[in-house]
């Protein structure tokens, strides 16, 4: 049987190939329960202003997903310029005691949340030069994915479809091209809607899947988190197993030899 290799990012190994977001849950308890059910070891968080003078005993996200137990992946969600993204990453590194793995996303517009590629390239270059280990959200353009890898990003994360859309993988041929070219992990990030989408991404050969809304916006987020875990494991195993070739017409599974009735040729 083909050996299952762990996912390796920036020198660290992970058994789970599911990376999960922490947004849009009903409350912290549900977020914690869903994240645990997902089996994810890498958990992405947003960086925002602290509430001042209100909710003094408000629960802290990092108590629910402690850095001692999870790899925390701060993201630059909501940033529309390279300057803002770099600023957020520097604050995140201080927040997490020097932890320098970040999820870079520089957005182009609020309707599509598509990445602004020139600004993403600029931010990636500055962050890599500043010592960050950059996992970068990008479009499914194979040329840009390769450029980001060459610049020193530790993982390239092409979208499957727009963030939060749940539309699944819209351009599997581009993803295949990105995967064929890559020598860093390729994580499909954004657009996964349900477990079969995650499985398809893994069957194509993706190294992992990052998702959030598909779990948080499910009727039962904890159950969907478990489904995603299984979808990703199933997709990975199917990829490693190597699927059968497709053919247009049927091929009987039972032998024709030995039939004792008059068969059809």
């Amino acid at each position: 049987m083909t050996q299952q290799q762990p996912l390796s990012i920036a020198g660290r190994s992970y058994q789970s190939r599911l990376l999960i977001g922490t947004g849009k849950y009903r409350d912290m308890a549900q977020a914690g329960e869903a994240i645990r059910a997902s089996g994810a070891e890498i958990v992405t968080v947003a960086i925002r202003r602290t509430n001042i003078g209100q909710n003094a005993d408000e629960e802290n996200l990092l108590d629910v997903v402690p850095p001692s137990e999870f790899t925390i992946l701060p993201n630059t969600a909501g940033c529309y310029t390279a300057d803002d993204a770099v600023r957020v990453c520097r604050l995140a590194r201080e927040l997490l005691d020097g932890h320098d793995l970040v999820k870079l996303e520089v957005l182009g517009d609020p309707k599509t949340l598509y990445p602004d590629i020139p600004a993403t390239l600029e931010a990636a270059e500055r962050l890599v030069a500043d010592g960050f280990k950059v996992m970068v959200y990008t479009s499914d353009d194979p040329i840009i994915a390769r450029r980001l890898e060459e610049m020193g990003c530790v993982a390239v994360m092409p979208l499957a479809s727009p963030i939060g859309s749940g539309l699944g993988i819209q351009n599997r041929y581009n993803l295949l091209t990105i995967l064929e070219n890559a020598s860093v992990p390729i994580i499909v990030d954004a657009g996964v809607g349900t477990a079969s989408d995650a499985a398809v991404a893994m069957e194509l050969g993706a190294d992992g899947v990052l998702l959030n809304t598909a779990v948080a916006a499910a009727q039962d987020p904890v159950l969907m988190a478990s489904a995603m875990r299984k979808g990703i494991e199933a997709g990975r195993e199917a990829y490693l197993a190597g699927r059968m070739p497709m053919r247009r017409y049927a091929s009987a599974s039972s032998p024709l030899e030995g039939t004792f009735w008059q068969g059809r040729q």
Partner: peptide, 8 residues
């Protein structure tokens, strides 16, 4: 003054 919050 910033902190980590839920996000994807």
């Amino acid at each position: 003054i910033i902190r980590a919050i839920g996000g994807g």
